[in-house]
């Protein structure tokens, strides 16, 4: 089964990290890299929260908001999907101060990545909401629910199940894009790796460990999302009820 294979890969990755760090050449780098990994995980988690919030807001605004709000959310989605995450990061970090807005590098990282992934997520949420069967809306109208009630009780819970797999992909995307924050001086996993590489020139141990650590983080996210998917689809029958 797929989850078993992923779990096996995760265990193998962690074992490999443990085995390698028995070697003094590798152990030397472990404390610094782990410190970086903690920052990477922090940015990922905060970025994910912001992304989900932005995605829900933008998708609902684009679907049901009044016209100006709809334009606003479309503009947000197109701008953040249409430019590089790196350019967005640089813009928030280097350009905003010129307009008198000074943000901490950590805040910039969470903002830029959260807004970036949120824009992709908005389309995922919108697609999932649209894909809920029409009859569900009609039944909710027949039951005299208000629009907010329909969304909260009927539509979103069903859309939620359809959203999980694409959100899994986006969260992996997020984990990987956190490596960009090293370029705005945040001491994440990638930054630490570069620093250690430049100071010790022990390229192979440093980058091997970093690759394995990212792999472990990504695999954990993938496994968590698969489990969530299983949990959410429990009791659901696929396809139409006979």
């Amino acid at each position: 089964m797929w989850i078993r294979m992923l779990a096996a890969m995760l265990v193998a990755t962690l074992l490999l990290i443990a085995l390698l760090s028995a070697n003094p050449d590798y152990r030397l780098f472990m404390p610094g890299l782990l410190e970086g990994a903690v920052l990477t995980v922090e940015i990922t988690l905060l970025g994910a929260v912001l992304a989900v919030f932005m995605a829900l807001t933008a998708a609902l605004a684009k679907l049901y908001g009044p016209l100006p709000i709809r334009w606003l959310s479309t503009t947000y989605i197109e701008i953040f999907r249409g430019t590089s995450a790196l350019v967005q990061l640089f813009w928030l970090y280097f350009v905003l101060p010129q307009f008198g807005v000074f943000l901490d590098a950590f805040v910039v990282a969470v903002l830029a990545l959260g807004l970036n992934i949120g824009a992709y997520g908005a389309e995922v949420v919108r697609g999932a909401i649209i894909s809920v069967a029409r009859g569900q809306w009609e039944a909710a109208i027949a039951l005299n629910m208000s629009k907010a009630q329909m969304l909260r009780r009927i539509i979103l819970p069903q859309a939620f199940t359809a959203m999980i797999p694409p959100w899994g992909n986006l969260f992996i995307e997020l984990v990987k894009s956190t490596s960009l924050v090293s370029l705005i001086t945040l001491a994440d996993l990638t930054f630490k790796a570069q620093q250690m590489n430049q100071s010790t020139l022990k390229t192979v141990p440093v980058f091997t460990l970093v690759l394995l650590m990212y792999l472990a983080i990504s695999l954990t996210v993938t496994i968590a999302m698969r489990l969530l998917e299983q949990r959410a689809s429990r009791g659901l029958t696929r396809g139409r009820v006979a």
């Binding site: 990987k176 590489n197 990504s218």
Partner: peptide, 25 residues
């Protein structure tokens, strides 16, 4: 499958560094 999963689960930036800094070794 494993190869694809490995490549997809690690950041491109690290892979660029890997090719640029590790391969010369």
């Amino acid at each position: 499958t494993i190869l694809v999963e490995l490549i997809r689960s690690t950041p491109l930036l690290i892979q660029i560094f890997f090719l640029y800094f590790v391969l010369p070794k």
